[in-house]
Amino acid sequence: PSFGFLFDIDGVLVRGRTPIPAARAAFRKLVNPQGQFLVPVVFVTNAGDCLRQKKAEQLSHLLGVPISQDQVMMSHSPLRMFKRYHEKCVLVSGQGPLLDIAQDLGFCQPITIDTLREKRPLLDAVDHDRRPNVLRSQEQLFSLSTVVLFGEPVRWETSLQLIIDVLLTSGYPGNPYGQESYPHLPVLACNMDLMWVAEAQSPR
């Protein structure tokens, strides 16, 4: 065939974990009796909270047709091309298996917000119940050279505070803020959507 299809996922084929009824019927017309697609099909999504293989398995289950990871383009997929950052120590923020996602994309030294918080517990002061009761010597930490935002975090206040610390200390969180330098460390934001469609009647 001389054409193919690019399908958005959320709000187009599924709402949250519920497939749109017409989508399953439509996809049955796109495959032959052996379950093979009759034309090239690729799925694109702003989601960044899982590996491509996991998303392919979810789609296969929801739509009732076999889908491979090579047919899935996640919001973080283009980071495979950002090879100049792959050997550097990067801070990753979002949800899901962050280290697995980062390493699958080629990053060799990813550090999560939770790991940074463990190494620099005094930086996270909003939630009084999570403040350390006993001060301990701070662990040695490699300088961070880049911030990677895979998607929205759960604890916004912690993520925002620690990311600000990384940017205002040029990669040495825990140090005093220095003079603001511009440009600051690179921030690679995979998904800048502030609204999306799920099962609720109104966008989230």
Rank of each mutant, 00 (worst) to 15 (best):
G94L: 10
H86N: 10
V92I: 15
P66F: 09
K119A: 09
V147T: 09
R84K: 15
V134D: 06
S68Y: 02
G16I: 01
E180H: 08
V154A: 05
A56G: 09
L105G: 03
L168H: 09
Q161V: 12
R117C: 13
A47S: 13
V44S: 04
R155G: 00
H76Q: 15
T18D: 03
Q140D: 11
L185A: 12
V41E: 07
L194P: 00
D10R: 01
V31I: 15
L188P: 08
V90Q: 10
G151F: 01
E152A: 06
Q103N: 07
V166P: 09
G64Y: 03
P97N: 07
Q161G: 03
E157Y: 08
D104L: 08
E199V: 07
F107W: 12
L188S: 10
Q36R: 12
N32W: 02
N175R: 14
F7I: 05
M81S: 13
S143W: 00
G171Y: 13
P1K: 07
R28Q: 15
R84G: 06
F27G: 03
E118I: 00
V187L: 14
P203S: 06
S159R: 07
S170E: 14
F5R: 03
Q109D: 04
T146P: 01
W156A: 05
A56Q: 05
L167K: 11
N191I: 03
A56P: 09
V92W: 12
D165R: 03
C50V: 01
R80F: 12
S202T: 08
P186Q: 14
P121H: 05
L162S: 07
V39L: 15
M81P: 00
W196S: 05
V187A: 10
S181C: 11
A47R: 07
C108G: 00
D70M: 05
L149N: 07
Y172M: 11
L188A: 13
N175D: 15
E57R: 06
R120G: 05
P19M: 02
P110K: 07
L194Y: 04
D127P: 00
V42D: 01
N175M: 14
L59D: 01
Q140E: 15
G94A: 08
N191Y: 04
I101W: 11
N32S: 11
P110S: 08
P21L: 05
R52A: 15
P173G: 07
Y182N: 14
L6F: 13
L135K: 11
E180V: 13
K29R: 14
A23H: 00
F5N: 02
P19G: 04
S77Q: 08
R155Y: 04
G16K: 00
P40Q: 12
G171C: 13
C190Q: 11
A25Q: 07
F142K: 11
F27Y: 01
G178N: 10
I67P: 03
S181T: 15
L99N: 10
R80P: 02
Q138G: 04
L59K: 03
D127W: 07
P78F: 10
G171N: 10
T112K: 04
S2C: 14
V148G: 06
V166T: 13
S75E: 12
L194W: 01
